[in-house]
Design a protein around this nucleic acid. Structure first.
Lengths: 276, 276
DNA sequence: CTTGACTCTCAAGTCGCTTGAGAGTGTACA
DNA sequence: TGTACACTCTCAAGCGACTTGAGAGTCAAG
């Protein structure tokens, strides 16, 4: 008969943990004094405790361990549990390794630039969106504004409300300062909506923007004249972190145009990992 | 000016999280209505939020992020933080990979044996211990009991109390059924204690058992006649999991000898990882 | 009979949120 | 103008596997 402190020394498990295990019914002491409440353990309880520690070591929750030890579960069920754990652990390993790479990159950046970069690139996924879009070749980039205005006004006349900020998609393979192939897209409700004619040849088309499982995003807060700097930041980031763009890049215009405050724009690149 | 739900859609962060960030002072809304309490955000707050997400992605705590963003911290300090994180993440990766290997081994075992093994091997570290020990070549293994009795009686006469269960250390390189080189060691308090003569030639020596950073341990609950089975279990386990013994093995006798209950013994192997 | 080491229970804290209850607010439509 | 309904608010509790601490009781030695 060991008191809890002695038993704790034997098995190298803190007293507080033993008490916790007793409370949740994972490892009851062999005997509990009815008057003092003192817990008394036997050495024969060590095998059970060791099974507990071993299962815990595999990453199972205490609840699962109680199940495995108290009810007797079929090997198949245990195999199922372990296989789920296996997948989970693999995912953790992958995630943490990616995180490690990001931290290393960040350290390198700080070392090279002597300070913490203030513009942040964020990875995320983008879901498919229902939009009304207008695609055109335009002579200069600042005509995007005119396209948006035209699209917005036409929707306004039809009584259609946007459900998210407008987007411009740049379809050219390489960067062009002129004759850009641009599509402006305004997210709308999924309801039954048809294409809308603008003039003799041009149409506002209803379509579904594709989902992108992985995109890199960065916010540019400031005038469009300086947006190239932010493109440079994201480009550098992609190169340093081993990603490659996989399709047309987006700009999302998060603020309505106002005279007194600079616009906020989100730049989005669909990407994939190199050698992934 | 976005309401919290709109801002949440923009940045793809749940409303509940945004409220939480506001509460802990990580990202205050640009404006809070004094009467209704409604939070209003600006698109210009997105860069800060993105910085938050990026730092969180590196695994920093929100508290650290508040520090980095609100006070302006020197690049050196940030480098320090990141390097600590780097080490932590590396450790997580290593641990999880080891865990993955253990889970895989376990799955294999279940497949081979058709059931969950009930004897568990546990890895742990053992600290250095102050002991009084007696080392001898003995003809048969069951003489260990006699050595222990002799040592205990001698300590008893000197009024010295053991502080933990007695240990036997098997110093032979290979297993020998006879003429074993065995040391019995009884942990005692660290106080100033000298060697004790037993008879003409033999001594109880005071010494410090070395610490072992990594040992494999298994509990054998039952008579000594069946202890070889448990040795086989731990041996198989070491082979399957890629470990190699690095020194003399121990047995710890967790129960005092009693006639009616079988003894409980812990078997301990100092080990190291192969190819580690 | 005291001292000091040990034990007990119960509550709260850890982290980064999420969930839920209960109440108030904003806006579109009949 | 009423009303539905989506949205927002605050505050409290919950997650998991314990740890920490307060306050009270117990045990063994001297």
């Amino acid at each position: 008969m060991f008191k809890i402190g002695e038993f704790s020394k034997l098995c190298r498990v803190p007293v507080s943990a033993l008490r916790y295990y007793a409370n949740i019914g994972l490892l009851e002491p062999a005997h509990t004094d009815k008057f003092t409440g003192y817990r008394y353990y036997l050495a024969t309880q060590l095998p059970r405790l060791n099974r507990i520690l071993a299962l815990k070591d595999l990453g199972l929750s205490l609840e699962q361990i109680i199940k495995i030890l108290n009810e007797n579960i079929s090997p198949d069920e245990i195999r199922g549990m372990l296989r789920i754990r296996q997948a989970e652990i693999q995912q953790i390993v992958d995630e943490e390794q990616a995180r490690l790479a990001r931290v290393a990159t960040r350290l390198l950046q700080i070392q090279q630039e002597g300070k913490m970069p203030t513009q942040e690139v964020v990875l995320k996924a983008i879901e498919s969106q229902h939009v009304i879009s207008l695609r055109q070749i335009i002579a200069t980039p600042d005509m995007v504004g005119a396209m948006l205005t035209e699209a917005f006004m036409t929707l306004g006349m039809k009584g259609i409300q946007p459900v998210a900020p407008p987007i411009a998609i740049f379809h050219d393979q390489e960067f062009k300062p002129a004759d850009m192939d641009v599509e402006v897209a305004i997210p709308v409700d999924g309801g039954g909506q048809g294409d809308i004619a603008l003039d003799g040849e041009r149409w506002l088309r209803v379509r579904q923007l594709p989902a992108h499982p992985l995109v890199a995003s960065i916010i540019h807060a400031g005038h469009f004249e300086t947006i190239e700097q932010t493109y440079a930041v994201i480009g550098t980031w992609l190169a340093q972190n081993g990603y490659r763009p996989t399709g047309a890049s987006y700009e999302v215009y998060l603020t309505a145009p106002e005279a007194d405050t600079p616009p906020v724009t989100e730049i989005i690149f669909p990407i994939e990992k190199i050698n992934g």
